[in-house]
Design a protein around this nucleic acid. Sequence first.
DNA 1: AGCTAATCGAGACGGTACGTCTGGTCTTGGA
DNA 2: TCCAAGACCAGACGTACCGTCTCGATTAGCT
Lengths: 200, 200, 200, 200
Amino acid sequence: MAAGRKRSETSRLAALAATRALLVELGYERITLDAIAARAGVGRQTLYRWWGSKGAIVADAALAGGVATELRPIADSGDLRGDLRAWLNEWVSHVATPEGTSLTLALTAASSDNQAIADQLYERFTGPHEEQLRARLARAREVDQLPADADVSTIAAVLIGFLLYRILGRQRLPAASDVDALVSLVVRRQGDGHGEAARH
Amino acid sequence: MAAGRKRSETSRLAALAATRALLVELGYERITLDAIAARAGVGRQTLYRWWGSKGAIVADAALAGGVATELRPIADSGDLRGDLRAWLNEWVSHVATPEGTSLTLALTAASSDNQAIADQLYERFTGPHEEQLRARLARAREVDQLPADADVSTIAAVLIGFLLYRILGRQRLPAASDVDALVSLVVRRQGDGHGEAARH
Amino acid sequence: MAAGRKRSETSRLAALAATRALLVELGYERITLDAIAARAGVGRQTLYRWWGSKGAIVADAALAGGVATELRPIADSGDLRGDLRAWLNEWVSHVATPEGTSLTLALTAASSDNQAIADQLYERFTGPHEEQLRARLARAREVDQLPADADVSTIAAVLIGFLLYRILGRQRLPAASDVDALVSLVVRRQGDGHGEAARH
Amino acid sequence: MAAGRKRSETSRLAALAATRALLVELGYERITLDAIAARAGVGRQTLYRWWGSKGAIVADAALAGGVATELRPIADSGDLRGDLRAWLNEWVSHVATPEGTSLTLALTAASSDNQAIADQLYERFTGPHEEQLRARLARAREVDQLPADADVSTIAAVLIGFLLYRILGRQRLPAASDVDALVSLVVRRQGDGHGEAARH
DNA sequence: AGCTAATCGAGACGGTACGTCTGGTCTTGGA
DNA sequence: TCCAAGACCAGACGTACCGTCTCGATTAGCT
């Protein structure tokens, strides 16, 4: 029962780095497995051996060390609105880089193209972030920074959806004031009337 | 200088219909100009003559008669929340069809791929809808269904972003109750406190 | 009922010429359809469209304008031995060129590899030559330059087999004296005893 | 200086046997070192260690125990024509088997491809047989079964070339009557006129 | 008995060529 | 001048082999 040669970690990392670089330069559609292999100094068969398709390697490259890993957890300073603003602004500044924009667009294209990638993206990236957001909102609700009947899932979806719309629209990324307006819209100060209460 | 034969309207419509059909069956990445030409009974050169690229014909097909045109304007019954719920639900039911989902995903992929398509999409589709939404919200603000300082742009972006997130996530389309929660979150009954007013 | 573009004669000839050139340079095994296409300035698909395989194009290239077409018919001067010697010597000098040797070896390799090529080679090349040889021998028999019971098929096969053996052996091509010996062996002067006749 | 492990004779024989089997099944061009290694249950590196190339292993497999070794020497019963007929017929029946045909074609292809194989083939196989033939013919000449001026080299080449032509042609292997005609053509009964003797 | 070194089967590596498919262009003959 | 058909060049696709390079596991001779 012989072992055979081990998978080359060098090749794996070179392939992912080359993919990220080419994704930034060319975008998902114009990228080529030939180009990735050439840039990484790796055989084409090696890419097929370990990833099997362009979509898979792109997803892995974008998620492993690309977009996802540098994101910080949402702070819990006790100030929900401040924490959300900080988190959203960090996101925006992260995506505002050319690399961030390219990788995000590439992931969107790959997800639209391939259900498996979409699932992986959700499982490894979107889902954890959404869950983190819901957890932070739930904690805020417990300390009465949100009304007891606040719908944390809807709030989380609205925050992420807003970012998504602005990124994909590529017209203009949200400024700090846009983030302020967003947070103010969906998270009112506790003690603000909610429901039919105090007429003005 | 002879005038020559006129452009064949039959061919144009057949090409667009074939593109839509194949988009639904295959998605943006897997579609082929050969396949469009064959299904439409049209020469391949004819597609290049009038559209010039795969992206252009896909965008035209999806926008002209595909996703966009069947949408109704937002009603103005005087009841903002009801009107928004109706509009959002109509949108959801429109996208919930297989054809609607496929065309939306195809447009997303094409937009991620190609800035020109993204611009066209915004100009002919997203922009008008957002503008319509802002106009409806502004009218509501005038009749005091929204606070005077409400940020209609942010509200509009949030509503669209929420839909976008749910569609692209492909986990599950929003139910009527999700739409209710969304509308309740961003459009409070007039008289609700809004702004920095009360407690500190 | 439209016609479509005609097959490009330019491309066809360029492909065959490039194949011959590369066959001489590289030999059958080391030749590449990529290389043929590149040298001919022709798309690779065009080669597959019209020939379908490396073997087919090699056979066509070697037969059409390569080895076969320049061969003269066997003369009929009335002198069988002289005519055969001339024909054999012409053959040897033809094959003795680098191009002739390479093409012959390539055809042999291709025939060993592929029955279809072997059949085509026989039908378009070997067969006609053998038939021509048989016809010349039969005419000689009619004018009593060969015995009435001479087996023209065997003689023809022996002449061709001798050449084949010397060419494939690649040790040394037959000289004029070898050709003389061969002709003397298989074609005796009429009037020479044949059979049990004149004991010595 | 320790010695290390010895070469595995088991592996060597398994490799040669697998090569012969695959040569029969697939032919020279379609054979694969992967396939040989897999069938022999041998590592690929072992093949390269001991033979170094596909051509080398194929030549070794075909010559060692394949085509060559089973051939008997030419008998010397005193009857030259009978001995030649027996030898040729044995050859034909040997090659007429599927295995014999495949191995012969494989050797031809390999020789056309590779000069080193061609040389080895001549040295280990064709050469010895031709030499054996020449020796038998020379002995016959000494006992006056051939004319004193008979060219034994040409006769030997003619006999081998005839076989080669029939085998490679693959149209039909020579029957016993063809062998008779061949022998009668090149070996006339002593006492037959030979040379420029009689008529002018 | 332990050491040392060459061998073994297995299998990943960087490459090259395969045969196919598509993109975008050009040509043909008919309307 | 447009159209359907279809050949053209270019180049990416995913697969199959090549010849090389690790791996860990056997074998031996030499100490």
